[in-house]
């Protein structure tokens, strides 16, 4: 009998204290961010969409090898001896002509291992995160700017726009 009344009393007390603390939160400021109007200030290390500065890319393919999900496709050919030498901005000679550099962002797992493998730091993860598309194929980003001299890679499509 005593526990019966104690239980009722305890029930009422704890319900009131629960409601009190919940009621106090009615007046605390909200933490919501009104997303499309306000946006998060991203930290500089944010790992979002991959971006390749193709002018600095030497086509070494380290990124493709380090990628756990194999989302990077690099195809290169040797530059001819007679061609004028091309250099990346840090002075590394671009001995290879990169004619395919595709990144499938739908496959990417955003681990960032490729950016650390890159010897010229041309492959970076940007803070761009609003890039949803209607077709999965649109998630394949084509970065290569040069055309192959040999016929090996011509079957692949070139990007429609940058």
């Amino acid at each position: 009998m005593l526990t019966y009344f104690r239980n009722i009393g305890q029930g009422i007390m704890t319900i009131v204290s629960s409601m009190a603390i919940a009621g106090r939160h009615l007046f605390t400021p909200s933490v919501t961010l009104q997303y499309p109007k306000e946006k998060w200030l991203l930290p500089e290390r944010s790992r979002m969409r991959l971006m390749n500065k193709i002018e600095d890319c030497i086509g070494c393919g380290q990124c493709a090898r380090s990628c756990p999900t194999e989302c990077i496709l690099v195809k290169t050919e040797k530059r001819g001896k007679e061609e004028a030498p091309v250099f990346a901005s840090d002075g590394t000679a671009k001995k290879l002509r990169t004619y395919v550099f595709d990144i499938d962002m739908a496959l990417c797992c955003y681990c960032g291992l490729c950016t650390f493998a890159c010897p010229t730091q041309c492959l970076i993860m940007t803070g761009e995160y609003e890039y949803s598309v209607y077709d999965k194929d649109e998630h394949i980003y084509h970065f290569a700017a040069e055309k192959p001299l040999t016929v090996a890679g011509e079957s692949r499509q070139n990007p429609p726009e940058g």
Partner: peptide, 14 residues
Amino acid sequence: KVSAHIQDRLGPMV
């Protein structure tokens, strides 16, 4: 609105 503010949210705003 009540639920949102108890939970530190804002609820519908648009």
